[in-house]
Design a protein around this nucleic acid. Structure first.
Lengths: 214, 214
DNA sequence: GCATGCTTGTTACTAGCGGTAACCCTAGTT
DNA sequence: AACTAGGGTTACCGCTAGTAACAAGCATGC
């Protein structure tokens, strides 16, 4: 049959696709998340319609691009999360892995945090909720499963784990974003502060004496 | 002098501005964050250039629009945060206030969470960092000051408070966003789960026996 | 009375975006 | 030689943000 030929063609197409993705990567890294299809096509040495033949629309290209980086980052995180160490160490190492990643490639990070970005108007009733970037969602779910697998949380553990997964990821994300913008302290200090927060130091701290009103 | 006249004109301009903002509000509430300037102008019964005269560009309009809602939400949050109750109660009530707000007007919430949205390309070296919505930043700073005012955190308290402020806000945001999309539990349960997380239940939980590998 | 300016509003345009239709050309098959 | 299949291009559509230029209404100064 045509199987051999088909795989041949498919291989060629896949290679082309990878090349295009790499070109897109370069452009996004240079121009940020609002890189235009024209610019990407030019970087790849071709013209727009080819991009559209490969990826359907801008969302498709961006999704493919995001998937690569998301998968890579999630692999690193999984490694930190599964390391044979005690819980606090694992938490700190996971936080540090994430923060190191966004520190090393902030443009990529910023690109990944964009929701759907496009969403041409016209469609009444846009999808409220699901505003977050897929990366955040995936990290949240991932963390949730690890928590649920590892920790004994009593009844309702699954739901609790999911809330915590998404909550912790959000904490990490927001703190990292703020930190990246202001750089108020070293990465290690940030990691330590966040771990302290998760370790209940907020609840354990004493009230300040002579506060306003008390 | 022309002070009286000036104030007269300024009043008129301010009133007009408010009207335009309310029209914009209606459109954003209907069409979502990607509402076009044309649509907003039409809703206000005028044409584009007037909008541009009042707000400069789309970013200006959106910033003005966001400021209104952000101020309103921050007022509610401050009230919950400053209530005369113990810490756990205040935390829960603040979380609940935020979640109730995003539950009640999800479109507005989604609009507020958008960063700058526009940012025409061309400017090389876009602002990495500062990706987050202004609302998140302001909430984070607000919470940080409250924490620093109220809690005795020892040395480095200011920096720690800021990390925690942004971290907690991010936790609240991400969990709320996920919850709004999936609705896996009631608001009260979500609040409780998040407060538990902040109260150190993650650190206190026991390891699961018979886990994979241990 | 009348020209001057100021605010409010319009029409008509530019430049660039995402996306697509139509065509072109070269390779390989029969 | 004729035909088909992909890879590739030009030229377009409809939309967007944003702007220039022009047209009133209405106060002021002389």
């Amino acid at each position: 049959m045509d199987t051999t030929q088909r795989t041949d063609q498919q291989r060629s197409a896949d290679r082309r696709r990878r090349e295009l993705l790499e070109a897109a990567d370069r452009v996004v890294l240079r121009d940020g998340p609002q890189a235009s299809m024209n610019a990407i096509a030019a970087e790849a040495g071709i013209t727009k319609p080819i991009l559209y033949r490969h990826f359907g629309d801008k969302g498709g290209l961006y999704a493919a691009l995001a998937k690569r980086h998301t998968d890579a980052l999630l692999d690193s995180l999984r490694a930190a999360l599964d390391a044979p160490a005690d819980r606090r160490e694992r938490v700190e190492s996971t936080l540090d892995t994430y923060l190191a990643a966004i520190e090393a490639r902030p443009q990529v990070y910023r690109f990944l945090m964009h929701p759907a970005e496009g969403g041409h108007a016209g469609d009444q009733g846009f999808d409220v909720g699901k505003h977050s970037a897929p990366l955040l969602r995936r990290m949240g779910e991932e963390l949730a499963t690890v928590i649920e697998e590892r920790l004994d949380l009593g009844p309702g553990s699954q739901q609790l784990a999911r809330v915590w997964g998404h909550g912790i990821v959000g904490m990490m994300h927001a703190a990292g974003d703020w930190w990246l913008g202001e750089r108020p302290c070293s990465r290690a200090e940030l990691v330590r502060s966040l771990a302290d927060l998760l370790w209940g130091r907020l609840a354990a701290a004493g009230d300040k004496v002579g506060g306003p009103g008390f």
